[in-house]
């Protein structure tokens, strides 16, 4: 009861920085969504957008269709992908107690890649086969890494297992690549660079519940992640069964990031850099870091996708390329400034 009073008093004086940060992020995201909806190879001005939505009919049919059937689902996918990548990145960094962790560390991205490569080289299938195969690959690789790593009592076992799985998976991928035809090689390259081009309403409709449930569950585990940060012994004495905790977090990450990577291909750096930035501003308390990573991740991807769609119009850059091109130097800058936590 007294806690509430204190909180209310503080609110009346000033909004706590954490709440403010979340609010600012949400507002920025909204602004980004509104501005990027007008960006794209196809010309739709904001003015005609509003008059069209208000039913004045200024927007011709083609523009309407491009907007609703192509651009909007794509922006929704960017939003969901950003949320998922941000939160799973933060979760992995908590799990490994290491700011350099991201879902790829346990073989998730590599497994997805291998699944996709197998589908591309061995079948002539489309998005569904490649996506399912990628998802399966992500799950199998993550589970294998877990099986190997769970024998050791601390998390470094999982890390080493992840490295081993990554190595094996990349070798298998190499075997497939050597046999691939020219066209298949280019398909593989583009898949690895990630793309939001497969966004349609059915795909968004399928991914959203999966991702949102996964993200929701991860965010609700903020106390566990805080406990992990303090160290294994302390977490154990706080009453957490480390094996169960690690298993739960890993599974949630696999089932949140897995379907996403299956649809979009490899999008790097968002899971690594976004939680970093968030921690720089808000501290390491996962109560704020997780939702802020979700919002910031969404912001990053919505903006990156807008750049990807516009910078080489009418051609498109793969989004993974944009995030790496921006995220890489940015990350170096962070390290040089010594702020990486």
């Amino acid at each position: 009861m007294s806690e509430w009073v204190v909180t209310m008093k503080r609110w009346r004086q000033h909004i706590p920085p954490t709440h403010l940060a979340l609010l600012i992020l949400a507002v920025l995201l909204l602004i980004a969504l509104l501005t990027t909806v007008t960006q794209g190879a196809y010309d739709i001005s904001l003015k005609s957008l509003f008059t069209g939505m208000l039913g004045r009919g200024r927007l011709d049919e083609l523009s309407q269709n491009v907007l609703f059937d192509i651009r909007l689902p794509r922006m929704m996918l960017a939003l969901i992908a950003g949320v998922a990548l941000g939160v799973t990145g933060a979760a992995m960094q908590a799990l490994f107690r290491n700011p350099l962790a991201e879902p790829g560390l346990v073989g998730l991205s590599a497994g997805a890649s291998l699944g996709a490569v197998l589908a591309i080289v061995l079948t002539s299938g489309g998005l569904l086969i490649i996506g399912s195969s990628a998802f399966l690959g992500a799950l199998v690789a993550t589970y294998l890494a877990y099986m190997l790593g769970v024998r050791s009592h601390n998390v470094s076992g999982l890390l080493l297992a992840g490295i081993a799985i990554n190595t094996i998976v990349f070798s298998l991928m190499g075997l497939m690549i050597v046999q691939a035809s020219d066209a298949q090689l280019r398909d593989i390259t583009f898949w690895n660079m990630g793309s939001l081009a497969g966004a349609t309403w059915p795909v968004v409709g399928l991914l959203s519940p999966l991702v949102l449930i996964g993200v929701g569950l991860l965010i609700s585990r903020w106390k566990v992640m805080n406990a992990l940060l303090v160290g294994d012994r302390a977490a154990f004495h706080l009453g957490y069964n480390l094996k169960t905790v690690r298993w739960q977090l890993l599974t949630l990450v696999a089932f949140t990031a897995g379907p996403l990577v299956a649809v979009t291909g490899g999008i790097g750096f968002v899971g690594l850099v976004v939680p970093h930035l968030v921690r720089m501003v808000l501290g390491a308390d996962h109560r704020w870091v997780l939702p802020a990573s979700a919002l910031a991740g969404a912001l990053a991807l919505v903006l990156s996708d807008s750049v990807a769609r516009v910078v080489m119009a009418p051609a498109e850059l793969p989004i993974g390329l944009v995030t790496s091109l921006v995220g890489g130097p940015f990350f170096i800058w962070l390290l040089l400034k010594g702020h990486a936590r």
């Binding site: 794209g40 190879a41 196809y42 083609l62 491009v66 280019r186 583009f190 051609a315 498109e316």
Partner: peptide, 12 residues
């Protein structure tokens, strides 16, 4: 790349 055409780019 003609095996990976962007929809908006073509429609634009």
């Amino acid at each position: 790349y003609y095996r990976r055409v962007p929809i908006e780019g073509v429609v634009a």
